[in-house]
């Protein structure tokens, strides 16, 4: 008997060929039916000698290979004329982060920046509106008194825990002075959790997290934590 695969679960202990005394399940067996506890041989002769299906599989992969190679060579004729971006490529790969997907939204909400006044001070008046509106509680502000009485307050510290942020954009909407904005920068990765807290100075630099010319990968960026 061995370990035959039971067609019917729960009846593994029955002997093959045993006649059931009564129906086991409603609709499973009728009385007197001979039970088979193994699947019938389902492979055809052609399947068992492998070769026809091996050839069919090879044909399929060879077709994909040749199609992609032809596509690459057509692309090459465009590329030598400097128009490589116009032609179709033989691979669906996108060289992230060197290039973004064409359907990447131009109004995508990503990394925050703090806007500045003319003298490079933050526009922010530390009113806590964004921190209050934040559903993820990831904005932490410490207010200080600004020397200019017309401004009243300014943020001594302005920390965004970017790993908690859900990029809802409520802070942007809540801000009365247009001090916080969300850019489309999405390369928000790092090797340390501590560095995922973006401080005031970093938010004020507006520096993109990935710069193509520097060939710096996200997470490798030099930044004082």
């Amino acid at each position: 008997m061995g370990t035959q695969r039971g067609k019917n679960k729960g009846f593994e202990n029955l002997v093959d060929g045993q006649v059931l005394p009564q129906p086991a399940y409603q609709g499973e067996f009728t009385e007197g039916e001979i039970v088979q506890y193994y699947n019938p041989e389902s492979m055809t002769w052609a399947e068992r000698i492998y070769l026809p299906y091996v050839l069919a599989g090879l044909g399929l992969t060879a077709k994909v290979f040749l199609r992609n190679m032809v596509t690459w060579f057509v692309w090459l004729t465009y590329w030598v004329r400097g128009k490589g971006a116009e032609a179709k490529r033989g691979a669906t790969t996108i060289y992230y982060p060197h290039e973004m997907r064409p359907d990447f939204s131009p109004v995508n909400r990503g990394k925050h920046i703090l806007t500045m006044r003319d003298n490079d001070d933050p526009q922010c008046v530390a009113c806590y509106m964004c921190a209050t509106a934040c559903p993820a509680f990831c904005i932490h502000i410490v207010a200080g008194e600004h020397p200019d009485p017309a401004i009243e307050k300014y943020p001594v510290r302005f920390d965004i825990e970017i790993d908690k942020c859900i990029f809802c954009g409520y802070c942007e909407e809540a801000c009365p002075v247009d001090a916080i904005r969300l850019t489309t920068d999405v390369h928000l990765v790092d090797y340390k959790r501590e560095r995922m807290v973006y401080d005031r100075e970093y938010l004020l630099t507006w520096k993109p997290t990935y710069v193509e010319e520097e060939h710096v990968y996200p997470g490798d960026r030099p930044r004082k934590s």
Binding site: V64, N68, M69, G90, A91, T92, T93, Y95
Partner: peptide, 10 residues
């Protein structure tokens, strides 16, 4: 490379 091209990769 051939494995990549066969699988639409680079």
């Amino acid at each position: 490379k051939q494995g990549a091209v066969m699988a639409n990769r680079i």
